[in-house]
Nucleic acid binder design. Structure first.
Lengths: 333, 333
DNA sequence: GGTTAAAATTGAATCGATTCATTCTACATA
DNA sequence: TATGTAGAATGAATCGATTCAATTTTAACC
């Protein structure tokens, strides 16, 4: 079936130890032997068995990445960043999709433990990720992704979601809006909660009141449904801020279907600034997050933790969101 | 660090063989012992080391999935299908992104060999995936994804891209269009080539000539660039068919920027029917492919191949594409 | 040629779960 | 009491790469 190091050794007339040295410490092998063994490796098409290697070493060069929804372009970008950075350092990545379900998340964590991953990058589904601490005892590093932690036993890479919420509402207020609806997902999602906090902060300062519409899932269909609720509000808002772009695109569709003009009759802001925001019916104003950077930073952080061990200092990296103005917002009528 | 089976055995006062039996053949263990050992496993938080297990077994329960672009929602959907199906059967999946580069693809194949994956699902970047045959000698099953194969040593799951190209042009011709532009990617991408064949087939039948615009990468920016080329055509087409939705969205933006109205002045069809096609500036008519199904089918196929071994009969599954009509197409002016 | 230090090579032990031939137990039957 | 048998439990050998103490080879010098 597959060629083992032992066979290479036999064929090249050297010991297994030497072949191992050729692979891992070529500098201690004589030039002649090195060349001969390398040729044999090539001839036989030998690829070392990562299982055996890591079984002995006690750890692997694989990472796990658990995100709530790969179908969301924001997380796809994050995943690309993680992958690129990991692959550059010789790490392979298991990508898992928790679908915002705590149960699925736990299942995947177990799978990843079995696979002996060296570290797990996770955007946890529940607010209090205490169960993650247990991983550390297993020697598995954990870095929170798109989520801040107060715990000093983990790294985290996040974007300032409170500030993001603030920026959005500040911008709308500056435009002159005073009746604003905030379409958000479950309070249990920390990103949503934080953006909501930002919304409230600014609302207080500007002494306006903001209507909260809560959807159960952050997808386009739910966004479309939210429109009905918005339109039945006692006082019609002049602007809508959505917890992410996907929901915003749903809301947009709902509004346009009912003949409501954007931005003339209703301004609309999303969150994430996914690539498709530009191609939307009305190019969508949004709060941009450095998704790819988020992925890269988190992968580098966790790999550094894996390799430096004790010498590693846990870090909390926080990126800043940015307002990207497009056609879906303007002054209220 | 991590608890080994040996420690469980010691603590439960049984032999390692018995613990192993508890895990893999509980029916041969007496009820009393079974319970005691299971309790110990729980107490100690023991999770079997997949490396050691698979090293001995000679194979793993992991699959590799190599796609040209995870950022493309079509492939994201495929990946979800693969993941769901694999996870249901207890398999973990490495997701790799080849970026349409043969070099990256080869690099990932090597990584996957090292990780001892049981099978690889791949949408190959080059047309003649001869190098994949070599994987079979390693005992790694290979299933082509979104790509047909004539080779009877592999399974394949694909969508009839020729038919897809035909459907699109047939529809445009039926509407009355006779001047059509076909915006496609590199000829080296088989899906593109096949769709092109479909385009040509129908063009011949209807005796119309179709202008081919080739972009180097299948992304929105390239689509936008293609518009310049289209508009400089000696005879302006009345309809454009794009090789995928992402490119189509780019073309749409390019057209709208220049004040060309869709569909009044120009009809536009995409391919893939990604979720965002609905939310586009002009909801996009597209050729739908059962992406999720594609993923599920391919994962089930390869797992069946892995587990049945010789008894497995290689299959070529082919799905049919479907026309989804939205607002971006109508009769020519 | 002899001595010694440095360089190169060797190969048995190891990682942890599985396998399977062997041993042990319990219990029914002669 | 002796015998047979099914059921349960055992533990050494195994998978393949790595490690490292021990050994062999090479080079350098007097």
């Amino acid at each position: 079936m597959s060629v083992s190091l032992r066979e290479v050794a036999a064929r090249a007339q050297v010991s297994v130890g030497t072949v191992s040295n050729v692979l891992n410490r070529p500098e201690v092998v004589s030039a002649l032997t090195l060349e001969r063994v390398q040729k044999t490796i090539k001839d036989l098409g030998f690829v070392p068995n990562a299982f055996a290697r890591h079984l002995r070493a006690g750890f692997s060069r694989t990472l796990g990445l658990i995100v709530p929804d790969v179908a969301n372009p924001f997380f796809t970008e994050v995943a690309r960043g993680v992958e690129d950075a990991a692959s550059k350092r010789g790490y392979a990545v298991f990508l898992c999709n928790s679908d915002e379900s705590v149960k699925k998340e736990e299942k995947y964590i177990n799978v990843l433990i079995q696979q002996q991953v060296r570290g797990i990058l996770i955007t946890p589904s529940n607010r209090d990720p205490a169960h993650l601490e247990a991983l550390l005892d297993r020697g598995i590093a954990v870095t929170l992704l798109d989520r801040e932690t107060k715990s000093r036993t983990q790294c985290s890479v996040s974007v300032d979601d409170i500030r993001g919420g603030e920026i959005a509402i500040e911008y709308l207020v500056t435009l002159g809006h005073r009746d604003i609806a905030w379409v958000c997902g479950p309070e249990s999602i920390p990103q949503v909660a934080d953006r909501g906090t930002g919304v409230t902060n600014v609302a207080k300062l500007a002494s306006i009141s903001i209507k909260t519409i809560r959807v159960t899932l952050m997808n386009a269909v739910q966004g479309e449904h939210a429109v009905t609720e918005i339109l039945s509000l006692p006082k019609l808002p002049t602007a809508i801020f959505c917890a992410n772009d996907i929901v915003a695109l749903g809301v947009m569709r709902g509004l346009l279907d009912r003949g409501i003009r954007i931005p003339e009759q209703m301004s609309l802001i999303g969150y994430d600034d996914i690539a498709f925001a530009t191609s939307a019916a009305i190019p969508l104003t949004s709060i941009a997050q450095p998704a790819y950077q988020l992925g890269v930073a988190s992968a580098e952080l966790i790999i550094s933790e894996c390799e430096k061990g004790e010498a590693h200092a846990h870090q909390q990296i926080k990126f800043q969101p940015k307002l990207v103005i497009r056609a879906s917002t303007q002054k209220p009528a």
